[in-house]
């Protein structure tokens, strides 16, 4: 095809071509503006992170003008709303650790077994039916799980453990574990599924059973992904709010006994937010200080989890 300006027969006619050429700058300008807008939208993700860190640091910094970091990190009494205020956050931290540990003891093994079953054992048809159920379970709002913990699981546990208080960390942790199961299972299953079929075939061709193949070939190959599932599951438990706020009670209590009521970091934030604390008061700032601790903990787990997940993607 000829594209000369004279407009030979059978080629683009001259005025048409001219228009395309003059439009070129307009077109390029428009394209660039659109790209800039899209970039700004994408950069929002960074902006949100920066905003979170900035707000938490800003409010927490005023808090730490009044409270020493040493007391905050090592004190065993947390009573910021009392007359005689104490600002040792260990009780909140311990409450968080205990509930998360219980949750992990439920979600880790169950999530792993489910992932292994769905990826290695289940007939594909059955897996197709079961997986949406798990997704639905993951979609149930946490407030509903909170109801379940307080008014179903706790009464049930009270029959097994006489003298168990109405608010306790055990029930909250158990239900939180159930809530995280689908999350852990789905990440672990993704990792196992990423193991190439050729490896499984290599194992089956040696006469290995499904269980042998799962434990000796698929698990080692997807190990970091399964670990990622555990780590991200723990992070979910640490940041979970409503279940613990409803079922574990909101009073800080420095104890490792899961039968006792105790507040977690998140439950404390809810308790303060429900009240009517004036903006700028030290109680108000304290939720940002503990929020900062929460962000640091979850960020730590998330980064490890994502690193582990990325590693498995790089291998296959």
């Amino acid at each position: 095809m000829t594209t000369t300006d004279t407009g030979g027969s059978g080629s683009l006619s001259s005025p048409y071509l001219d228009r395309i050429r003059t439009m070129r700058h307009v077109r390029n300008g428009k394209e660039r503006i659109i790209e800039a807008i899209l970039f700004v939208a994408a950069f929002c993700a960074v902006a949100v992170t920066v905003a979170i860190v900035a707000i938490l640091l800003y409010e927490a910094s005023t808090f730490f003008e009044h409270v020493s970091l040493v007391e905050f990190l090592t004190g065993t009494e947390w009573t910021p709303l009392f007359e005689r205020a104490r600002y040792g956050m260990l009780p909140l931290l311990v409450g968080t650790v205990v509930t998360s540990a219980i949750a992990f003891l439920v979600a880790g093994p169950l999530g792993f077994l489910i992932a292994m079953y769905l990826s290695e054992f289940a007939p594909p048809k059955l897996a197709e039916v079961l997986k949406p159920f798990l997704e639905l379970l993951a979609g149930v709002p946490t407030i509903v799980y909170g109801y379940f913990a307080l008014l179903f699981v706790t009464p049930l546990l009270q029959k097994l453990i006489p003298g168990l208080p109405g608010f306790n960390m055990l029930s909250a942790g158990l239900v939180m574990g159930l809530m995280i199961v689908p999350y852990v299972a789905s990440i672990a299953e993704d990792a196992m599924r990423a193991v190439p079929m050729a490896l499984r075939e290599g194992s089956y061709a040696m006469g290995a059973t499904r269980f042998q193949t799962a434990m000796w070939v698929v698990l080692p190959a997807s190990f970091s992904g399964v670990m990622a599932a555990f780590v991200l599951g723990i992070s979910r438990a640490v940041g979970e709010t409503m279940i613990v706020a409803i079922a574990a009670g909101q009073q800080p209590n420095f104890t490792f006994d899961p039968r006792e009521p105790a507040a977690t970091i998140t439950a404390y934030i809810v308790q303060v937010a429900m009240g009517d604390l004036p903006h700028g008061s030290i109680g108000y700032q304290s939720i940002f200080a503990v929020g900062l601790v929460l962000v640091v903990i979850t960020l730590f787990f998330n980064l490890i989890g994502q690193m582990l997940r990325r590693r498995i993607r790089e291998v296959y």
Partner: peptide
């Protein structure tokens, strides 16, 4: 990372 930030942090 944002996908894994606890929801209550968005509240703060």
């Amino acid at each position: 990372n944002l996908a894994a930030v606890p929801s209550i942090i968005y509240g703060l």
